[in-house]
């Protein structure tokens, strides 16, 4: 009985950590979809870019995970802002198909570039020694790294929430998500709000990519590999809903972790089936405001 409880606790920590990473990765995408209705299938490429930049910095020996993190996030935000101003501007008016095709093209280019620079091996960023330990409390095993992920992600999520609720920019962003046309009418510079949000979203994805390398190792196909889970988080959470994405990501992370452990024969199938059923039940997202 005690053993079962210990397993459940360990799985719960794993699941929540995975869910938090998914949440950070999907924040930018849900806002992009909510405000501008841009089908950005290249969003995970920014997570990968951040991950690889931090990986290269740490590998160079001059940086630790913690000094590399802000640098890589900033670099990814710059890249994101640059692309938003160029390639993404092209497809604002083309409709959904054009956006899908352009961003798939972008994913292909990023995958090829990653392979060129880092090869096709699985890579993970080296952790400081205190993070790579596991602690034992009786029969419960807890990994310091996963607790760290949960703590940092919770901090970021809390900051995000505070910005959205209490700042002027947050109010404008919420208005733009709720009704872009109306927001434009009352004088909110929606494209500018969007540019900033896009860039911040890329930064958050990068942070997820950097923090999560022990769970989701870097490899060239990373950008495509995690696209489906992230899209699922966004779809289940409801486009444009931060809170929805948060709950959806946690749920997905936990269900997937438990499913893989207790029903290994079904593998990742369980989570896809669950999401499909959820979407059929509520096509606008389970947590969407109706």
């Amino acid at each position: 009985m005690l053993k079962v409880a210990a397993t459940v606790a360990a799985l719960a920590v794993d699941g929540v950590a995975y869910g938090m990473i998914l949440f950070l990765m999907s924040v930018g995408l849900t806002i992009t979809l909510g405000v501008m209705r841009i089908a950005n299938l290249a969003h995970c490429a920014f997570a990968m870019a951040g991950g690889y930049i931090a990986f290269a910095l740490v590998r160079s020996g001059y940086f630790s995970l913690f000094t590399a993190l802000p640098l890589a996030v900033a670099a990814t935000m710059l890249i994101g802002a640059g692309l938003e101003r160029s390639l993404y501007r092209w497809v604002y008016a083309t409709g959904q198909l054009g956006q899908i095709l352009m961003t798939i093209g972008l994913v292909f280019v990023v995958v090829a570039t990653a392979n060129l620079l880092f090869g096709s091996n699985l890579n993970a960023i080296a952790l400081p020694s205190w993070l790579s330990q596991t602690y034992f409390y009786g029969s419960v095993t807890i990994s310091a790294y996963r607790v760290f992920i949960i703590a940092v992600s919770t901090g970021i999520a809390g900051t995000l929430w505070a910005i959205l609720e209490f700042t002027d920019f947050g109010a404008r962003l919420r208005a733009a998500v709720d009704n872009p046309r109306m927001a434009r009418c009352v004088g909110i510079d929606v494209p500018r709000v969007f540019s900033i949000t896009f860039s911040v979203g890329c930064g958050l994805a990068a942070a997820a990519g950097i923090l999560g390398t022990q769970i989701m190792p870097l490899e060239p196909w990373y950008a495509l590999e995690y696209l489906v889970p992230v899209l699922m988080v966004v779809a289940v959470g409801g486009l444009g809903s931060l809170k929805g994405s948060f709950y959806a990501a946690l749920m997905l992370g936990v269900v997937d972790t438990f499913g893989r452990y207790y029903v290994p024969a079904a593998g990742a199938f369980i989570i896809y089936l669950a999401v499909l059923l959820l979407l059929l039940w509520r096509p606008q997202g389970v947590f969407a405001r109706v």
């Binding site: 497809v91 095709l101 352009m102 292909f108 090829a112």
Partner: peptide, 13 residues
């Protein structure tokens, strides 16, 4: 893959 991606981006534009 790099070429396909590039062509795709340019083709959309």
């Amino acid at each position: 893959l790099f070429a396909v991606g590039g062509v795709l981006i340019l083709a959309v534009r």
